[in-house]
Protein backbone atom coordinates (compact mmCIF):
# COMPACT_ATOMS: atom_id res chain seq x y z
CA UNK A 1 0.00 0.00 0.00
CA UNK A 2 1.43 3.30 -1.10
CA UNK A 3 0.16 5.07 2.01
CA UNK A 4 2.22 2.92 4.32
CA UNK A 5 5.48 3.98 2.76
CA UNK A 6 7.40 6.73 4.44
CA UNK A 7 8.96 9.09 1.91
CA UNK A 8 12.35 10.34 2.97
CA UNK A 9 14.63 12.84 1.31
CA UNK A 10 18.28 13.11 2.27
CA UNK A 11 20.30 16.18 1.38
CA UNK A 12 23.97 15.37 1.80
CA UNK A 13 26.98 16.23 -0.37
CA UNK A 14 29.03 13.24 0.80
CA UNK A 15 28.48 10.23 -1.45
CA UNK A 16 29.70 7.76 1.18
CA UNK A 17 27.30 9.14 3.76
CA UNK A 18 24.42 8.85 1.28
CA UNK A 19 25.25 5.23 0.60
CA UNK A 20 25.66 4.46 4.31
CA UNK A 21 22.27 6.03 4.97
CA UNK A 22 20.58 4.13 2.14
CA UNK A 23 21.97 0.79 3.31
CA UNK A 24 20.82 1.42 6.87
CA UNK A 25 17.34 2.37 5.71
CA UNK A 26 17.06 -0.80 3.68
CA UNK A 27 17.77 -2.93 6.72
CA UNK A 28 15.10 -1.55 8.99
CA UNK A 29 11.60 -3.02 9.20
CA UNK A 30 9.70 0.09 8.27
CA UNK A 31 8.79 0.60 4.62
CA UNK A 32 10.61 3.62 3.32
CA UNK A 33 11.32 5.20 0.02
CA UNK A 34 14.51 7.25 0.06
CA UNK A 35 15.48 9.94 -2.46
CA UNK A 36 18.65 11.98 -2.51
CA UNK A 37 19.87 15.42 -3.41
CA UNK A 38 23.52 16.45 -3.29
CA UNK A 39 23.39 20.00 -2.03
CA UNK A 40 21.20 22.70 -0.57
CA UNK A 41 20.34 24.32 -3.87
CA UNK A 42 19.18 21.02 -5.35
CA UNK A 43 17.13 20.46 -2.21
CA UNK A 44 15.31 23.78 -2.47
CA UNK A 45 14.72 23.32 -6.19
CA UNK A 46 13.33 19.88 -5.49
CA UNK A 47 10.99 21.06 -2.75
CA UNK A 48 9.84 24.07 -4.73
CA UNK A 49 8.74 22.11 -7.78
CA UNK A 50 5.08 22.76 -8.41
CA UNK A 51 2.74 19.82 -7.77
CA UNK A 52 5.44 17.72 -6.19
CA UNK A 53 4.49 15.07 -3.66
CA UNK A 54 6.44 16.32 -0.66
CA UNK A 55 8.53 13.88 1.36
CA UNK A 56 7.36 13.14 4.90
CA UNK A 57 10.79 13.68 6.39
CA UNK A 58 13.81 15.61 5.17
CA UNK A 59 17.26 14.73 6.48
CA UNK A 60 19.50 17.73 6.12
CA UNK A 61 23.29 17.87 6.40
CA UNK A 62 24.35 21.20 7.91
CA UNK A 63 27.61 21.44 6.10
CA UNK A 64 26.89 21.50 2.36
CA UNK A 65 28.35 23.54 -0.50
CA UNK A 66 26.42 26.18 -2.45
CA UNK A 67 23.67 26.48 0.11
CA UNK A 68 24.17 25.33 3.70
CA UNK A 69 21.74 23.22 5.68
CA UNK A 70 21.02 26.13 7.99
CA UNK A 71 20.07 28.39 5.07
CA UNK A 72 17.78 25.64 3.73
CA UNK A 73 16.22 25.21 7.15
CA UNK A 74 15.40 28.91 7.41
CA UNK A 75 13.96 28.95 3.89
CA UNK A 76 11.83 25.89 4.56
CA UNK A 77 10.43 27.27 7.80
CA UNK A 78 9.72 30.58 6.11
CA UNK A 79 7.60 28.91 3.43
CA UNK A 80 3.99 28.16 4.31
CA UNK A 81 3.80 25.16 1.97
CA UNK A 82 6.79 23.51 3.58
CA UNK A 83 6.20 24.43 7.19
CA UNK A 84 4.82 21.03 8.19
CA UNK A 85 7.77 19.00 6.93
CA UNK A 86 9.63 17.11 9.60
CA UNK A 87 13.20 18.34 9.41
CA UNK A 88 15.97 16.19 10.73
CA UNK A 89 19.40 17.75 10.91
CA UNK A 90 21.96 15.11 10.10
CA UNK A 91 25.36 16.47 10.91
CA UNK A 92 28.87 15.59 11.99
CA UNK A 93 28.82 18.48 14.44
CA UNK A 94 27.80 17.77 18.00
CA UNK A 95 28.43 21.28 19.28
CA UNK A 96 25.83 22.59 21.63
CA UNK A 97 25.57 25.82 19.69
CA UNK A 98 24.85 24.08 16.39
CA UNK A 99 22.23 21.91 18.05
CA UNK A 100 20.52 24.83 19.74
CA UNK A 101 20.61 27.03 16.62
CA UNK A 102 19.13 24.26 14.50
CA UNK A 103 16.24 23.89 16.92
CA UNK A 104 15.70 27.61 17.25
CA UNK A 105 15.40 27.87 13.46
CA UNK A 106 12.83 25.11 13.38
CA UNK A 107 14.50 21.70 13.17
CA UNK A 108 12.54 18.88 14.82
CA UNK A 109 15.30 16.37 15.27
CA UNK A 110 19.05 16.72 15.47
CA UNK A 111 21.22 13.69 14.79
CA UNK A 112 24.91 13.66 15.38
CA UNK A 113 25.95 11.26 12.60
CA UNK A 114 27.03 7.98 14.13
CA UNK A 115 29.98 6.33 12.39
CA UNK A 116 28.99 2.83 13.33
CA UNK A 117 26.50 1.08 11.06
CA UNK A 118 24.42 -0.61 13.75
CA UNK A 119 24.19 2.65 15.70
CA UNK A 120 23.03 4.43 12.58
CA UNK A 121 20.28 1.86 12.10
CA UNK A 122 19.19 2.16 15.71
CA UNK A 123 19.20 5.94 15.39
CA UNK A 124 17.10 5.92 12.24
CA UNK A 125 14.57 3.55 13.78
CA UNK A 126 14.20 5.88 16.76
CA UNK A 127 13.83 8.91 14.55
CA UNK A 128 11.19 7.30 12.38
CA UNK A 129 9.25 5.99 15.35
CA UNK A 130 9.31 9.33 17.05
CA UNK A 131 8.19 11.11 13.94
CA UNK A 132 5.41 8.60 13.46
CA UNK A 133 4.25 9.16 17.01
CA UNK A 134 4.12 12.90 16.55
CA UNK A 135 2.14 12.44 13.38
CA UNK A 136 -0.36 9.91 14.56
CA UNK A 137 -0.96 11.24 18.04
CA UNK A 138 -1.49 14.84 17.19
CA UNK A 139 1.31 15.87 19.52
CA UNK A 140 2.21 19.52 19.35
CA UNK A 141 4.67 20.05 16.56
CA UNK A 142 6.04 23.21 18.14
CA UNK A 143 7.26 21.08 21.01
CA UNK A 144 8.75 18.41 18.80
CA UNK A 145 12.46 18.62 19.62
CA UNK A 146 14.60 15.56 19.76
CA UNK A 147 18.37 15.51 19.87
CA UNK A 148 20.04 12.18 19.39
CA UNK A 149 23.68 11.15 19.66
CA UNK A 150 25.71 8.12 20.66
CA UNK A 151 24.68 8.45 24.29
CA UNK A 152 20.90 8.24 23.93
CA UNK A 153 20.47 5.81 21.02
Amino acid sequence: MEDNVLHILLADDDADDRLFFKDAMEEIKIMTNVSFVNDGLQLMNYLNQPDIKLPHVVFLDLNMPIKSGMECLKEIRGNDCLRDLTIVIYSTSGSEKDIEDAFVYGANIYIKKPNDFSKLKATLVQVINRNWQYHTLGLKRENFLFSINESNV
Partner: peptide, 22 residues
Protein backbone atom coordinates in the same frame (compact mmCIF):
# COMPACT_ATOMS: atom_id res chain seq x y z
CA UNK B 1 13.57 14.46 29.99
CA UNK B 2 17.17 14.49 28.84
CA UNK B 3 17.09 10.84 27.85
CA UNK B 4 13.87 11.27 25.89
CA UNK B 5 14.50 14.55 24.11
CA UNK B 6 18.30 14.74 24.20
CA UNK B 7 17.95 18.15 25.82
CA UNK B 8 17.78 19.30 29.40
CA UNK B 9 14.53 21.01 30.47
CA UNK B 10 16.46 24.29 30.72
CA UNK B 11 17.84 23.96 27.18
CA UNK B 12 14.40 23.13 25.94
CA UNK B 13 12.91 26.17 27.60
CA UNK B 14 15.65 28.40 26.19
CA UNK B 15 15.13 27.11 22.63
CA UNK B 16 11.39 27.67 22.74
CA UNK B 17 11.91 31.16 24.15
CA UNK B 18 14.41 32.02 21.41
CA UNK B 19 11.99 30.76 18.78
CA UNK B 20 9.31 33.04 20.13
CA UNK B 21 11.66 36.03 20.08
CA UNK B 22 12.58 35.16 16.50
Amino acid sequence: FKKTTGLTPTQFQRIIQKRKNL
